[in-house]
């Protein structure tokens, strides 16, 4: 649809005054700004010695949350793996050893090098099991090292949960609807 001529606003170039034509006042003004900034407070953070404080919603390394009994919260529903635009989450589900859920992840691997840190997995998770922490200095010597498995992701949880920077953001308490087991299906659970 073309723009109606009445909605178009034409802005003319500002005409320069004789003062502006001199160039010199503008030059002086610019130089004073430059010199002022030269002596102003520096914003540099000297990284390895000084650490920036990142906001709590920062999307850094993932972690797998534990529930109140210390078990992995994840119910292996594959929602995070489905939501992931980079296809970096690899889950192998297995029947849960615990009575309150049907499945649990036998393997849970995130390729931290493939991940684009978008946070979609966190959004998708129905049981608040996966979260992104404020850890930002993720480094490693090999590609294999950067494949974070379940144990490592749980270790990230243990490392970050009581640091004060990464409280559990999403709701605490019972597992979400994805873990709910309907009565008629719950009877023949294999492992119990």
């Amino acid at each position: 649809m073309p723009i109606a001529p009445s909605e178009v606003k034409w802005i003319d170039e500002r005409t320069l005054s004789p003062w502006d034509w001199l160039y010199l006042p503008a030059l002086w003004e610019g130089l004073s700004t430059t010199v002022r900034h030269m002596f102003s407070k520096k914003v540099t953070i000297e990284f390895p010695e000084q650490r920036p404080s990142v906001p709590p919603h920062y999307k850094g390394v993932h972690r797998l949350n534990r529930d109140e009994q210390g078990r992995v919260r994840c119910v292996a529903c594959y929602l995070c793996a489905t939501a992931c635009p980079a296809h970096c989450i690899d889950i192998v589900a297995a029947p849960s050893p615990w009575p309150d859920r049907e499945k649990y992840p036998e393997l849970f691997v995130i390729d931290e090098l493939r991940c684009i840190y978008c946070g979609m997995c966190e959004e998708a998770c129905p049981v608040d099991a996966i979260e992104l922490t404020t850890l930002y200095d993720l480094t490693g010597f090999s590609r294999e090292e950067m494949l974070f498995d379940k144990e490592k992701l749980l270790a990230v949880y243990d490392y970050t949960v009581n640091k004060g920077t990464d409280a559990i953001r999403t709701l605490r308490g019972t597992l979400g609807p994805a873990s709910e087991i309907l009565e008629q299906q719950s009877a023949p659970l294999p492992n119990t």
């Binding site: 900034h37 030269m38 540099t44």
Partner: peptide, 13 residues
Amino acid sequence: KVAAWVQDRKGPN
């Protein structure tokens, strides 16, 4: 250094 100072940075250090 001057470039850094003008941009509120510290420059090579």
